[in-house]
Design a protein around this nucleic acid. Structure first.
Lengths: 221, 221
DNA sequence: TTGTAAAGTTAAGCATACTTAAACTTGAAT
DNA sequence: ATTCAAGTTTAAGTATGCTTAACTTTACAA
C-alpha cells in the first residue's frame, strides 16, 4: 500500500543496510534517491509513524520487520520482472533493469505469482541476484567475492553483477562479459586500484568502482 | 509525460467522446473517474493549459489532436498488455483488464514495441477491441451492433465485449460466452428491456445495461 | 420572461512529496 | 572543555490532486 515514493525509500533503506551497518544516514538515502537531505528526514517521520522504519533523529534509519517484508516484496517483483522480460521477450540483461524499476510498483501479488510460476519459481535473476521466494525467504548465494578482492594469477567465474548502470551493463555486453564468464586476474594497478583481467582471450581493465560491482567465485579445477 | 491521474483523465475524455458527442461534461468525467465535479473542473484547467484538451467553461471538454494522440498511446498500451498477459501467462480474459489498467502507465515505448512485435503486431485485443498500431492508426472493426439492437429469431456471433466489470466478465466466462460464440435471440422482455438468448443449448437473459456492452455481427449462413 | 433546480465552477483546505534556507546536533580537533 | 565544520533537522514554501462548501451559470418550465 505505500506510494511509489515510499516504496523506493524502503527499497533504498534495505539496499544501503545490506553492505554497511544495520542503519543508514539520511544523507546516504538522499544521494541514493536523488532528493535533498531535508526530504529524506521528512519522509523518515512518515514511514516511521506507519511502522516501516525505525528512526531516531541524528542516528539514522533502519527497517522494522514490517519494512523489511515490504522491501523484500518489492525486490521480488523487480527481479521476477527482469527475468520474465528476458525469457519472454528476449530483452538483453542490460535492458531489463530500468523497465522493472517502473513495473515493480504496479504489479499485484496475483500477477507476480503467475509470473513466478511461469518461470518455474526461479532462484536467481539475470544478474545473479537471488529472487525472494513467495514465502519471503531469500535463496542463498554461493560464496562470492568482489573483483577487487581477487588474487592475481587465479581464475574465477563471474557470478553476479550490479545492474544499476545501463552504461556499465552495455559495456559488459560489448566485451562479452556474462554470468559464468571465465576470467583470469592479470594484475592490480596501484595507481588507481584498477584490475586487469583476461576474458575470452582479450585483456580488459576495470576501475575500482566497477570492480566492486562484479562478484566472482573461484574456479575449482 | 502526463501523470497517472492526467493519463486517466485523458483516457476518460477519449472514451466518453466515442459514443456520444464530440465533447463531455465535467460531471460525466467525475462519474467515470470517481472523483468530484470540482476536481474534474480543476483538472480541466491544467490539461487545457498543457494543450491536451479543449475546455470552455460550462461547455464541456474535448481532446485536442495532441490529447487524442496521447489517449491512443495509452489505449494501445492497455490492449497490448491485455493480449500479452493472456498469451504469455494464460490469464483469463476476465483477469487482464485490471492488471493492464496499472501497467499501462508504467510502460516505455521501447517495451511496448517489443511486446507488439512478440505478439506479431496484432489488430484486436482479447475482448475484440482494436489495438492502435505503432503509427497511431486504429484497425477497422467489422460492422457490429449491440445486443439490444438485434432482431428476435436471428443468429449472431459475439464480436466484442466491454471488459470494465470483472463481475460481468466472470459471469460471461461461467456461462461459456466467448468471442465468436454463436447466439440466437429468443426474445426481448418489455418489462425491463432485457434480452433472452440461446447459447450452447442453454437459455440466458441479459439486462439492458449488460446488453449494451455485448457487440455482435449477423451470422451469414 | 423569469424563477429555480440542476449542472458546473471557484475558493479554501488537506495530504503528499518535494524544494531552499535557516537552525540545530554531533563529534573530533584543539 | 571548547569550538566549529559537517551532518541533520526544522520551517516555510511550491505543485499536484484531491475534498467540501459556497457560489455562478444554464436551461427549461411556468
Amino acid at each position: 500500500m505505500p506510494s511509489i515514493s515510499k516504496e523506493n525509500y524502503i527499497k533504498a533503506v534495505y539496499s544501503l543496510c545490506q553492505n554497511d551497518a544495520h542503519s543508514v544516514s539520511t544523507s546516504a538515502l538522499a544521494t541514493k534517491l536523488n532528493i535533498t537531505n531535508a526530504a529524506t528526514s521528512d519522509m523518515a517521520k512518515g514511514l516511521s509513524k506507519q511502522g516501516f522504519i525505525k528512526y531516531e533523529k541524528y542516528k539514522g534509519v533502519s527497517l522494522t520487520p514490517k519494512g523489511e517484508k515490504t522491501a523484500i516484496e518489492i525486490i521480488r517483483k523487480h527481479r521476477l520482472w527482469e527475468l520474465f522480460l528476458m525469457k519472454s521477450l528476449e530483452l538483453g540483461w542490460e535492458e531489463v533493469h530500468s523497465e522493472a524499476e517502473h513495473l515493480e510498483h504496479q504489479t499485484t501479488e496475483f500477477l507476480m505469482n503467475k509470473i513466478d510460476d511461469f518461470l518455474g519459481n526461479p532462484k536467481f535473476d539475470p544478474h545473479g541476484e537471488p529472487i525472494p521466494q513467495k514465502d519471503g525467504t531469500i535463496p542463498n548465494m554461493e560464496a562470492q567475492i568482489s573483483l577487487n578482492k581477487s588474487q592475481v594469477g587465479k581464475e574465477y567465474l563471474v557470478k553476479r553483477v550490479n545492474d544499476e548502470s545501463k552504461e556499465v551493463m552495455d559495456y559488459f555486453t560489448e566485451i562479452g562479459l556474462n554470468l559464468n564468464s571465465k576470467i583470469k586476474i592479470k594484475n592490480f594497478l596501484k595507481y588507481d586500484n584498477s584490475t586487469i583481467i583476461e576474458l575470452n582471450d582479450n585483456v580488459h581493465s576495470f576501475s575500482e568502482k566497477i570492480g566492486k560491482r562484479i562478484f566472482i567465485s573461484q574456479l575449482n579445477e
